[in-house]
Nucleic acid binder design. Sequence first.
DNA 1: TAGATTGTTAATCGATTAACAATC
DNA 2: TAGATTGTTAATCGATTAACAATC
Lengths: 216, 216
Amino acid sequence: MPQQKKAPVVVSIQALHRMPYYLHLLKDYQAAGETVISAKAVATELRLNDVQVRKDLAAVSSVKGRPNTGFEIQDLIDNMEDYLGYNNLMDAVLVGTGSLGRALLSYKGFENYGLNIVAAFDNNPDLVGTRISERTVKSTEDLSDFCKRLKIHIGIITVPAPAAQEVCDQLLDGGILAIWNFAPAHLSAPEHVLIQDENMAASLAMLSRKLKEATR
Amino acid sequence: MPQQKKAPVVVSIQALHRMPYYLHLLKDYQAAGETVISAKAVATELRLNDVQVRKDLAAVSSVKGRPNTGFEIQDLIDNMEDYLGYNNLMDAVLVGTGSLGRALLSYKGFENYGLNIVAAFDNNPDLVGTRISERTVKSTEDLSDFCKRLKIHIGIITVPAPAAQEVCDQLLDGGILAIWNFAPAHLSAPEHVLIQDENMAASLAMLSRKLKEATR
DNA sequence: TAGATTGTTAATCGATTAACAATC
DNA sequence: TAGATTGTTAATCGATTAACAATC
């Protein structure tokens, strides 16, 4: 039996995190008129180990590099965008139209990353019905029904921490499979639901801690 | 020679990332009227390994847990806030008053995490002089001078990606030691400067990738 | 050909988890 | 005392880096 399938290369979470940086750099080089790039050049730019770069690229890309030359930039970009899912748009709902929620709604760039925020929700009756960045704010009462009806798989939580779990439960009720959580709170959810925490408090803590160590 | 110094426990970057979650949970328990908590309970709540929790707590806390009882919640909170630097406010400047910059400026919670945004900068002359969340927007021309004069150590970059490196250079010029970078771009800076990337594109990519794998 | 670069296999490094004695 | 929990030492796991043959 011929094994035609691509080997299921496991990409570590750290490697996955590096991917957008590769992509960004590749586009920069392409914009500068380059057509090929070596793993070593990428490594130097991003201050990474060149073997690591080669492994990362090999994991997500079907093209091979040519000794003494490097990789075709266009090929890598295509493969990486494909891998990162930037090519197929996914629908999402956003809950919580405070300042951060508004900022995310007004950000035009998410479509480039494959994310389409189709609706915004808030529990404040004064906000329900108003329009933010061309979307009408809906009541959180309709949240789970909306998700079910439109088969939305991604929920973005931008409510204050104390309300986060409740919103999470509503999203789960609506059949959501992945949550992008901006609330500084730990969410409880079934194993199969993906939770991506965007905890700015955590990031800030890391920054301030490292700064403290550095200036000691 | 007596070694009175606390052992220089190395806290991994992953561990550091868990700290804010511990702190949050501890405060929740305290708010619920608890005074002690076991590492096991923390581990169960946050879906971590209990030995890991004990190691993490031991690394940042001077108090020891009591067998059969656990840890004093208040002690842990004190130690952790201290460790994370939430008790000593650090000054920062923010550059780029687009939607994300505004969202961060309007967020009242940063002071709880030890961050004080003292000024906002933008290169758009129309915005310079306007007020956002009780701060007057200054011109980026004055950025490095301002940082030098007030001895600011932290810079927050919320400008579009193509402008990020230029702003970074200005901040470095102003003697900044740490940068919290929200632009989806890789910044070049000397080794000793801390760069904390808050790359939403990267997070989003991870979410969408994992979702893709899960629904396959 | 010589030099540069690739990709793979093995070694190293670091973090997580398991095992277990110590303690309240 | 027995049971629960702690903290430490050792084993495991996974990611990064080093070494090196293969290739253009």
